[in-house]
Write a protein that binds this DNA or RNA. Structure first.
Lengths: 373, 373
DNA sequence: CCCGTTGCATCTGATTTTCCGATGCAGCGC
DNA sequence: GCGCTGCATCGGAAAATCAGATGCAACGGG
């Protein structure tokens, strides 16, 4: 409060004593119009929102708790809005205004990071928050991370594995900038860049009668017991493969775990439909699967790069990440016919260096607006 | 330089004496990673770029010239890039890096303004930089400005009238956020929202043989002398009306002024094709025109809201402006069948108030990156 | 060719802001 | 009931920012 007052006085004073080439209408700018409010305030606010605690935020920022407290208090009254609900002996809770500001504040800070970044054409550094759909992670993430850490050793790439819902929320609140995920259950407002389409396949035990064949029609499976991968988004997708043909599968078991499904099938408890196929195709308990191409016309599952705003509006770091994803998926054999490879990234090929401090998992605040997987 | 040094020392010192819940890897964050660099620096930089002078920028900001100088110097070495070329007794010139940063800096500052703005649901205030295509301005701008100033008296709406090229540049450098313009000659990267389509009409003098009729085929005009509105973008458009039918008009006169064309036609020097029609249809020298509907299938000229990123990513101020444009064009009778009216603006209907200090033209720096019209 | 002018950089003292550490205070939970 | 947690507030200290004066280099008119 004394802040706004002091500022205005200073302002007017200088206006009096300097030459004024233009009339800035001293009056009517009264309601503290954004001219105060500093980046520090935004940073502290975002940290506090992520940690749901000023104390923890202060610790993570290496400043005193009082600094965070006063900073946020100043921010609040210069915005004229309450951002947090303070629960006495508990943490903080974002108000509606706080939610609103959080995404924008993250946007702003990311934009500043990117502005700095873009003027250093030689190196990519700083931090990028990204996500990968959980079931996708074990297949591509290791290679993607490896590629990123060798090509850009100075980039702190922070990738979480999240569910579809979590990805939606993380993108809309800007907790992450990009995500590698299936194009299933994403909010319509989210922008996608299609990277690959992975086909559905059926799998049975090695001693199953169908194991002698290489492909199968879905109607041949409709009376077999099915083991369904029962995840929020994939569930409907696999069932739709049948229902879109007018068939109703006989779901015998449902599991939320990919490996549970596979081991059950390997032991002869039925067949399943899946997208991803581990190399070797061993199950955790040593079994193996026989996979069958599905002859029917089945829409494959699309792997996309999802973000709040389309490519081009992405930061340089995010564009580099997207390009690494494209590269990795292509190397994995998932070629997409019309894959738009045009989004060039203005980074020199590679900066081979020690693969030392790559991808540290430090300083990551817990459960910031979404539940950790 | 002493700045980065001091900061780092402080940082390390605190890290030593506080509890460190997370390892932040003190090293390797050496190249001044965006943590310094303030909004003030960005503001001063943008002002200096706009005025092409630190002295003028300082005056317009009511600060000492030394403040701008040191601020920009600090910004430069914390970015590790030179932003300006200093010409000794002349002004400043943006370097390539400076150009790059300018658009982003404007983006950031606008985003901050908007973040502040969005938390004040009752009023719209602050400043919005917009543009209107020159020949469009006299028809709609007065009404748009009137509507804006009565509904949002606290908004400083700064509208320039620009040519197509100038609009392209102003949008890409973020000198303006939105523009009301024809969809002609816009960069592909610019996002458009179609507001209306205005048809082509032909005009002749009142004593012209065709003046007895209400409509005409273009092939009837092909041998008549044509007076062409010869502006960079409209030129090709009007000629294409003929050439797309395989016709070649007989261009007798070319004028860059809308009114010159009209008065020539009214005096019987030929016919013309135009889009806009002033009410009354008087010319400056008192003449009048007879207008003829063109029977042939002619694509109308599209009036659009142009911006760097699509609606939705626009600031609240810009969305309000776009909505006022839609409203004004609709009231003018230019209804567009599929006009997407869905982009709701969360502002209460109107805040009727004194139409006092509306639309001041103060503090506008000259020729910032583009030539003034 | 000289010299006044222009325009940015630099220096110094002063003001303002920000920060730290300590203390206060209000609820939560054992 | 009482220790504990977590944010607010206060006072002194450190740091950044600023204004004004000065320096310096080049442009341009006479």
């Amino acid at each position: 409060m004394q802040r706004a007052g002091n500022f205005t006085e200073t302002h007017a004073k200088h206006a009096d004593r300097r030459l004024d080439p233009i009339d800035r209408r001293e009056v009517s700018v009264r309601p503290s119009s954004s001219r105060d409010l500093s980046l520090t305030q935004l940073r502290y606010f975002v940290a506090a929102a992520e940690w749901e605690s000023m104390t923890d935020a202060a610790a993570s920022l290496y400043v005193a708790q009082s600094a965070v407290s006063t900073s946020i208090a100043n921010l609040e009254d210069s915005l004229g809005a309450q951002l947090f609900i303070r629960r006495r002996a508990k943490g903080l809770l974002l108000t509606a205004s706080g939610q609103e500001l959080l995404a924008r504040a993250r946007d702003i800070l990311a934009a500043i990071d990117d502005a700095v970044d873009v003027l250093r054409p030689d190196t990519i550094s700083g931090r990028l928050e990204a996500a990968c759909f959980s079931t996708l992670a074990p297949f591509y993430l290791p290679e993607i991370l490896h590629g990123m850490s060798t090509r850009f050793p100075d980039l702190e790439l922070q990738i979480r594995d999240l569910s579809a819902d979590e990805i939606n929320e993380a993108i809309s609140t800007r907790a992450i900038e990009v995500a590698l995920t299936y194009d299933l259950g994403l909010d319509p407002s989210i922008v996608r860049e299609r990277l690959a389409t992975v086909p559905v396949y059926a799998a049975v035990a090695l001693d199953h009668p169908l194991a002698a064949r290489g492909e199968v029609h879905l109607h041949e499976l409709v009376d077999e017991p099915m083991v369904l991968l029962d995840l929020p988004v994939s569930r409907d997708y696999f069932l739709r493969a049948f229902t879109s043909l007018g068939l109703t599968p006989t779901v015998r078991h449902r599991f939320g775990s990919f490996e549970a499904v596979r081991s059950m099938v390997a032991r002869g408890h039925g067949f399943t439909l899946l997208n991803q196929k581990p190399v070797g195709d061993y199950t955790y308990d040593g079994g193996r699967l026989h996979t069958l191409r599905v002859i029917d016309e089945c829409p494959g599952m699309e792997i996309v790069i999802a973000s709040a705003s389309g490519p081009g509006a992405l930061s340089r770091k995010a564009r580099v990440f997207a390009e690494q994803c494209r590269r990795t998926l292509r190397a994995a054999g998932h070629v997409l016919e019309g894959a738009e490879d045009g989004v060039a990234v203005d980074v020199p090929g590679a900066v081979p260096s020690a693969v030392s401090g790559a991808v540290p998992a430090d300083g990551v605040p817990p459960a910031a607006g979404y539940v950790a997987a």
